[in-house]
Each structure stands twice: as C-alpha cells, then as structure tokens.
C-alpha cells in the first residue's frame, strides 16, 4: 500500500463531553478497500470517533480528510462529504414511516437529486445486494432486526460512498440475526468496500479486518493485523481485554 490510495485520514482527534475527555488524540489512515475494526471496552470513544469522522459530533480538535479534502470545518459542504461517508447504526434508525425501498430511495431523491425511475432501480439493486428485494414494500416495523439492519446497509450503499462507518451494527441483534448481517458485511469487504467497523465480534475481526485498532481510554492502544495483536507476545492489552470478556461470559 502506498500513500496514494489513502481514502480517509484522521489526525489527532480530541473530544470531550462536559469534563470528560472521551477521545485524546486519535490518528490513522484508511486505504482504499481496507477494513479496519475498532475494538475496546465500552466508553472508550469508539462510537464517538465514528461520529467525529462524519461530523455528527464535531471534534474539539484535529482533522479528518476525505480524498485529500478537509471534512472538518467544511461548513455547509459537510452534507457533500456525508454522502461519501456512509453510516450504519446500532439501532438501524430506519425511517419508520417509509417502506424498505423508500428508505433507500429517499436520500437518492432528496440529496443526490436523482430522477424517480433511476432512484427506484438503484434502490432495488441495493436491496438485492443485501438479499431483501422481496421485502422492498415492507415497513420497518414489519422487519426483523437483522433485516432492518441490512436495509440500513443498503441505504448507506445506495449513496455510493467512499467509505462506510459501522457503529456496533450487530449489538442490538440476537446471534442468529447477527450472522446474517455479518455475512452481508463480509461480502462487502470482499468486494472491496472500504469499511470502518466498531464491533465486539472477534470472529468477524479475525476473518475480515486488514487491521484491528484496540482503543482504551480515548487513544489507540494497540494497532496491527488481527493475527499480530492476538499472537505476538509483544502485544498484551487486547488479549487481556478479550480474556476479561471471555471469563465474564464463563461466569
């Protein structure tokens, strides 16, 4: 990899809420087609970091660059950048008053200014991608959690983003439904989508991630390939963390 294929550059992001410093200087580069997975104890700012990237939560300090353009301090242009930075949420946040299809269509019509027929085609294509073409006319309340999350992935994909941010996409789902969502995400990764994923799914991290970033206390504590962080004796903190989770599950 070289510097030419850097899609997203995050530099020294700081963020405090009240008196609490949630992010204390986070930096990394994301290369085209790469999947980065963020792991760490809850409350260490992983979700805040994702929201700082697309400015849903403006950082106090630091910069975000997308394809060489600054996303931070971009004023009204942020709506342009957000089209190119997709986001998938823990609780899906599907538009409750719209069918699956219209959920995917809405931003195509209102933000991209696409024609009706074209938006319709595009939305159907994306729903097909996530295996939900037949559910196009169903409302969010009629979908399972797994289906809802897949629709929300289709909604993000439809904007043809340069990168998609996944904020604990399976945390609200049963194991059964988790699997169907992870399958879709694996397929995306294989097809070369650039992805940043906050998750607790180690299996997913090991099989898909190009790089794992272990976050603790608002900073990236360890960083490397999943193999490296799990097996190189030089790295201990993520292993400790995973050990703690496992032992808690054994109790």
């Amino acid at each position: 990899m070289n510097d030419n294929d850097i899609v997203l550059r995050v530099e020294d992001i700081h963020k405090s809420f009240g008196g609490t410093e949630v992010l204390r200087g986070v930096s990394f580069d994301v290369h085209c087609g790469e999947t980065k997975v963020f792991i760490g104890p809850s409350g260490t700012g992983k979700s805040t970091l994702l929201r700082c990237i697309n400015q849903l939560t403006p950082p106090d300090r630091g910069q975000v660059w997308l394809d060489g353009e600054e996303v931070t301090n971009s004023g009204a242009r942020i709506n342009y950048f957000r089209q190119k930075i997709g986001m998938v949420f823990q609780n899906f946040f599907l538009f409750d008053h719209l069918t699956a299809l219209k959920n995917v269509e809405l931003a195509l019509l209102k933000v991209k200014g696409m024609g009706k027929a074209e938006a319709h085609e595009k939305a159907l294509t994306e729903l097909r991608q996530v295996g939900l073409e037949e559910w196009a006319d169903h409302y969010p309340a009629e979908l399972s959690g797994g289906q809802a999350q897949r629709v929300s992935i289709a909604r993000a994909l439809a904007m043809d983003p340069d990168v998609i941010l996944f904020d604990e996409p399976t945390s609200a789902l049963d194991p059964e439904l988790t699997r169907e969502v992870l399958e879709v995400m694996k397929k995306l990764a294989r097809n070369g989508m650039t992805m940043l994923v906050v998750t607790h799914e180690m299996g997913f991290a090991c099989s898909v991630a190009n790089e794992v970033l272990f976050m603790e206390n608002g900073v990236v504590a360890e960083q490397g390939s999943p193999d490296l962080l799990l097996h190189d004796p030089q790295f201990t903190r993520m292993k400790d963390f995973i050990g703690r989770i496992d032992s808690r599950m054994d109790d």
Partner: peptide, 17 residues
C-alpha cells in the same frame, strides 16, 4: 426519535431536508 434526524443527516441531508 432522535435517531431519525441523525440517520437523515448521516446521508447528507441538510437540516431543512
């Protein structure tokens, strides 16, 4: 719910839209 606004903004919609 607040998530509706967050999701809409994350897709690049203006506040007004």
């Amino acid at each position: 719910s607040e998530g509706q606004m967050i999701a809409a903004r994350s897709l690049g919609m203006s506040r007004f839209t």
